[in-house]
Write a protein that binds this DNA or RNA. Structure first.
Length: 665
DNA sequence: GGATGTGAAGTTTTT
DNA sequence: CTTCACATCC
């Protein structure tokens, strides 16, 4: 691959000095312009820097900003990339570059061009909670006991099938056991409801986009002509539909640069397909591969431990991290009696460090494998009055009051939205109960109309009480009137009017008898209003729909971010949510057989992914790493003996002692 | 239509 | 040992 030389169209001075600051591999990754490129970016190797400088460099090479496309998986990554590109090339040029998550990109495209694949421009997007409700309804309709097929299982089975690009018919052909047939039937009901509601789920956004690109030549041609340079961040997290979309978009110019680390692929269980990064050179013949192995984050002992663990995975692009920082403190290994002792140890140690003036609270993180582990840690931290933030758990957008209000908003934006109607009608209760709803649903099905329309024709439904009919009409009229006021910049004012109209305060008062929680919950509603206010102020042309889309596609909220970055506090979080972050001092807790690797992963033969999780955990640490395990742990109410994790021995380069037993053995 | 009790299950989480 | 979802009763 020819290395471009300095030309008369030399990059802006800032860009060339940026190039000079890169190491040779990074520079190679930035300045490889033609053909497929795989950048294997080890943990802490300056990945984001490479992508952003690459974008700036390409612009310096006279590639038009609007010919650049960069795809990410999270909004946070997209936001960060936009900001950093803007800092390099200036806001005006940066605005022209297409940077976004796969889902946001697809939503925007479908909004404008979805018609050929049957997507109406005003479609709604449902998140996974709405999806669950819809699936529950489907199971109820089929009279399937949830014991036989839980909505959760159903959801992941449908999603995994879609991820494999299987149609319902394909799934039907593959069905073996009775439950497989059940899945397909529920899937069909679910599809019907979504179609009636003019709604797409997250997977549909990708699948419809792929269908559009494949079936509609004009759109594919236009986009693949336009995007001369396509970049994908975190390529190891790509699923099949995303891969196919990228293939189509980069089809014309074949200038596809993907950046990722197969050793940090930890989302296989939700459809991410590591083989896509492992087989990149096969999928894109002639691809150039650049390895970024210099790590700017951690000291030698930490990286040695990381390298010793990950080398045990057989299926990977071999990489060895080298520290740019040099030597440091040895990794500390500790085995204590139980999870209380473990939490105490962590809390005491953190308190000592901070009191000794060697570190502040925010320098520390305790990383766990499962959601139940933080409990003991929280107790110990509270006991010492150590400020901490628990990342993850219930998101702002999962809170009941927020979901309730969003249901109202969705319903105003899209009166055909069944899931939202069925939720809003009870919040607060307004004289339309389950029995009435069942009749309305049956009527809607037999007439081939949506539940909303059935409400309008409540007179025609047999066996309803006059009061119920009246309530249904009133409910529809109220929302219709609110919809007629079509909010724009006045979104927040309008939202308050809506809350008053539907008397949402009554729902909060009813649900929370305690005055204090009541106030807290109402605070959640106010926060949503603030969010709306912000959106209305910042968006180019704010509408109710644009607000809903922003909310649905960005579950990682900024209110949370403010707290986490602003506050001086210890971070407690799962290994999954720690990916991409770094801390001077890290504690890995519960590193035992059965926890990490998790017992279920051992049973399902996915220990390799658990090892990557361990690797991610180790490589979060900048200067100090402490790895802990316990002798006994309470699980499901019972206390049981625990063996140190196999990873404990791997990272030390030791064989497990006699008498050690692997989980599942 | 809402409150109270019983039963089963119990990794990871973003879009 | 919890938690959460469902069913039953008022």
């Amino acid at each position: 691959m020819p290395r471009p030389t300095t030309s008369k169209h030399a990059a802006a001075p800032s860009v060339s000095s940026l190039l000079a600051d890169l190491n040779p591999e990074q520079r190679d990754a930035v300045t490889t312009k033609g053909g497929p490129l795989l950048v294997l970016a080890g943990a802490g190797s300056g990945k984001t820097r490479v992508i952003t400088v690459r974008i700036a460099w390409l612009m310096g090479q006279r590639v038009a900003p609007r010919a650049l496309l960069a795809m990410t998986f999270t909004n946070k990554a997209a936001r960060e990339m936009k900001e950093r590109v803007a800092a390099l090339v200036g806001g005006d040029a940066a605005k022209e570059v297409t940077v976004g998550t796969f889902h946001a990109f697809c939503a925007k495209l479908l909004r404008l061009r979805g018609a050929p694949v049957g997507v109406p421009p005003n479609f709604a997007i449902c998140d996974s909670a709405d999806q669950q409700s819809a699936l529950k309804a489907a199971l109820r309709e089929l009279r399937v006991a949830e014991a036989k097929l839980s909505p959760g299982t159903l959801q992941s089975r449908i999603s995994l099938a879609k991820n494999r690009l299987l149609s319902r018919n394909d799934a039907l052909a593959l069905a073996k056991e009775p439950v497989d047939h059940l899945v397909v039937r529920a899937w069909q009901k679910y599809d019907e409801q979504l179609a009636r509601s003019r709604t797409l789920d997250f997977d549909d956004l990708l699948l419809k986009t792929l269908a559009l690109l494949r079936e509609h030549d004009a759109t594919r041609r236009e986009l693949s002509d336009r995007f001369q340079q396509v970049m994908v961040d975190e390529y190891q997290d790509t699923n099949r539909p995303q891969y196919e979309i990228v293939r189509e978009l980069a089809g014309r110019h074949q200038n596809l640069a993907v950046v990722g680390d197969d050793d940090q692929s930890i989302y296989g269980w939700r459809g991410a397909d590591v083989t896509k990064i492992l087989h990149f050179e096969r999928d894109f013949p002639g691809a150039k591969v650049v390895r970024l192995e210099t790590n700017y984050r951690s000291t030698v002992p930490i990286l040695d431990a990381a390298n010793r663990v990950i080398v045990n995975n057989p299926h990977r692009h071999g990489k060895t991290l080298r520290s740019a920082l040099g030597d440091g403190d040895a990794v500390v290994y500790k085995r204590v009696d139980d999870e209380m002792a473990e939490a105490e140890f962590v809390a005491r140690e953190i308190a000592d460090r901070v009191r000794g003036g060697q570190a502040s609270w925010r320098d520390h993180a305790a990383l766990v494998r499962t959601a139940t582990q933080p409990r003991a840690l929280e107790t110990a931290l509270r006991g010492r009055s150590i400020p901490y933030v628990l990342v993850g758990g219930m998101s702002f957008f999962d809170r009941k009051e927020v979901r309730d209000v969003l249901a109202y908003l969705r319903l105003v934006a899209n009166p055909d939205d069944e899931v939202s109607l069925l939720r809003a009608i009870h919040c607060p209760p307004r004289g339309v109960g389950q029995a009435t709803l069942d009749k309305a649903l049956a009527f809607a099905t037999s007439e081939g109309i949506t539940v909303g329309r059935a409400f309008d024709r409540a007179d025609a439904i047999a066996g309803l009480q006059a009061s119920a009919v009246h309530a249904m009409h009133e409910f529809r009229a109220k929302l219709h009137a609110l919809g007629a006021q079509a909010p724009g910049r006045d979104l927040a004012t309008w939202l308050h009017r809506l809350l008053k109209e539907v008397d949402y305060r009554a729902e909060v008062d009813r649900t929370y008898p305690d005055a204090k929680t009541r106030e807290e919950r109402w605070q959640g509603v106010e926060e949503l209003a603030n969010f709306a206010e912000n959106h209305a102020r910042r968006a180019e042309s704010p509408t109710l729909q644009s607000f809903l889309e922003a909310v649905t596609l960005s579950q990682d909220d900024e209110t949370q971010d403010d707290d986490e970055h602003g506050k001086d506090a210890v971070t407690v979080m799962t290994l999954h949510s720690a990916k991409g972050l770094e801390f001077p001092r890290v504690y890995l807790v519960g590193v035992e057989e059965g926890i990490l690797p998790h017992a279920r992963a051992v049973a399902e033969n996915t220990v390799e992914e658990e090892r990557r999780l361990m690797y991610v955990g180790i490589t979060r640490a900048q200067r100090h790493l402490t790895v802990l395990c316990v002798r006994s742990r309470a699980r499901y109410g019972q206390r049981g003996e625990c063996m140190p994790s196999r990873f404990m021995y791997e990272m030390r380069g030791e064989a497990p002692p006699k008498g050690w037993k692997a989980c599942g053995a």
